[in-house]
C-alpha cells in the first residue's frame, strides 16, 4: 500500500503518471469509458410467456439486440444520464404481435436487470 503511494507520487513528479496509462506499441489505447450491462427478459403481459424476436435498442444509438427463445437479452452500453431502451416487435406475426414500449433507465449502476412485459396487439 505504502509502496503504491510512493510509486504514484514519483510517477506524478516524473509526468509518467500519464497514469501508468500507457499503450503498448502495437496495442490499443486504454479503455477509460464507463458502460453498464443491461440484461433482462421480455414476456407477454397476458400469457406471461417469454417473447422471442423483440428488438431491444438504445435510443439515439446504433446498438440493439434481439431477444432469444427465452425472451432474454444482454448487452453493454455507454453509461449516459438519460438512457432510454426501446422494445419493438420487428418480426411481424412470427412470434405474435406486440405493442412497442420505451423504458427510461433512472437507476445508475454498472449492471441492470429488467423484466419487461409487452401488451398483445
Amino acid at each position: 500500500m505504502k509502496k503504491n503511494v510512493c510509486r504514484k507520487i514519483i510517477g506524478g513528479l516524473s509526468l509518467t503518471s500519464a497514469m501508468f496509462v500507457f499503450q503498448a506499441c502495437y496495442g490499443t489505447p486504454q479503455d477509460f469509458g464507463l458502460d453498464l450491462l443491461v440484461e433482462g427478459q421480455v414476456k407477454a403481459k397476458a400469457s406471461g410467456l417469454p417473447i422471442q424476436g423483440i428488438k431491444v435498442s438504445v435510443a439515439g444509438n446504433v446498438q440493439y439486440e434481439i431477444t432469444d427463445e427465452n425472451g432474454k437479452f444482454s448487452f453493454y452500453t455507454e453509461m449516459l444520464e438519460d438512457l432510454t431502451l426501446k422494445f419493438q416487435d420487428v418480426d411481424s406475426t412470427q412470434n405474435g404481435l406486440f405493442h412497442d414500449k420505451d423504458t427510461l433507465l433512472t437507476e445508475r449502476s454498472d449492471k441492470i436487470y429488467l423484466d419487461i412485459t409487452l401488451d398483445e396487439k
Binding site: T28, G33, L37, T77
Partner: peptide, 26 residues
C-alpha cells in the same frame, strides 16, 4: 479491446462488439 485492419469491421460487427463490451479499438 482489439487491433484490426478494419476490413471486417462493418456495422453489424461494430454493434456486436459494442454489445459484448469492447472499450478500445485501433
Amino acid at each position: 479491446s482489439l487491433v484490426t485492419n478494419g476490413h471486417l469491421y462493418n456495422k453489424q460487427r461494430h454493434i456486436s462488439l459494442l454489445n459484448a463490451g469492447i472499450g478500445a479499438l485501433t
